[in-house]
Simulated scan of single mutants.
Amino acid sequence: MFKDLSPNLKSSITRSITQTFEQYMSSIEWSEDKYSIDDFIASWREYITTKALWYSKIPDDMKVNPIFHEDLAQRINEVIARVLGEPPSEGQIAAIQIMQEQLNTHLEYNCKAEAVYVETLLKNHLGL
């Protein structure tokens, strides 16, 4: 059913998953111990029902269809895997390394989105 949506609608859904996942992970400081798929889904559900303009464009009968929910769960898993699998850029690595040397820290990051979080954290500590 997800595949039957317009390309713009699928793109909007994907963006909302990506943004909400990255915001959720930042809120838990990218801690695997604090991660809960249920908490993330609750955050995403709140976002789509209160802020997402695309949500009202999905027919109500589709919203309650179990097949649509399965398709959506699969898309969520794909997006999360893509976010977690995208490596940090060379620029991010270099900038983080310089700041960590200045602050004598050793924060770890495994993907581009987590590197954005770490870079922001370090900049805040340096007052940049």
Rank of each mutant, 00 (worst) to 15 (best):
K63G: 03
R75I: 15
Y109H: 10
E46K: 11
E29G: 02
K51F: 09
D38V: 14
L5Y: 00
D71F: 02
C111K: 10
L103T: 02
T120H: 03
A73E: 08
D61C: 00
T20G: 09
L84R: 09
W30H: 02
Q92T: 03
E101L: 07
I48H: 07
Q97K: 14
K3V: 08
Q19S: 12
I96P: 00
E90N: 06
F21L: 11
Q92H: 05
E101F: 11
Q23F: 06
Q19G: 08
I13F: 05
I41F: 09
F2N: 00
E29V: 15
S31E: 10
N110Q: 14
N110W: 13
I37V: 14
F2D: 01
S12D: 13
V79G: 01
W30N: 02
L9M: 05
W30M: 07
N65F: 03
Q100P: 03
N77P: 08
A73P: 08
E101W: 12
Q102E: 13
E119P: 03
E119T: 12
A73L: 13
T14W: 05
F2E: 05
N77T: 15
K57V: 12
Q74L: 15
P87I: 09
I17R: 06
R82W: 04
W54N: 02
N77R: 14
Q100F: 12
K57E: 09
K34G: 05
E101A: 15
F2Q: 01
Y55M: 05
A94G: 01
V116L: 12
H125A: 14
K57Y: 03
E119W: 15
E86K: 07
K10D: 04
R82F: 14
D38W: 10
F68P: 02
L72C: 10
A94M: 08
L72N: 04
E32N: 03
E29I: 13
D38G: 05
A113P: 01
V83P: 02
I13C: 02
S12M: 08
Q100E: 14
K10G: 09
L107P: 00
I93E: 02
A81H: 01
L103K: 00
I93T: 09
C111W: 05
I80H: 03
E46R: 13
Q102D: 10
G127Y: 10
P59D: 08
L121T: 13
I96V: 01
K63Q: 03
S6F: 00
A94Y: 05
Q19N: 15
N77I: 15
D71A: 04
N110D: 11
R75E: 13
Q100W: 08
A95F: 10
A94Q: 11
H125W: 14
Y47R: 09
S16T: 13
E70W: 12
N110A: 12
Q102I: 09
Y35M: 10
T49H: 04
A115P: 00
E101R: 10
L128T: 01
N104E: 05
A94S: 10
D4M: 08
Q100R: 15
D71P: 01
D38M: 12
S26T: 13
A94C: 02
E114D: 07
H106E: 13
Y117G: 04
I37D: 13
I93D: 06
N110P: 00
T20H: 01
L128E: 14
W30L: 11
I76W: 03
Q92G: 03
L121M: 06
S43C: 11
D60R: 14
P66D: 06
L72P: 07
D61Q: 06
I58S: 04
K57R: 05
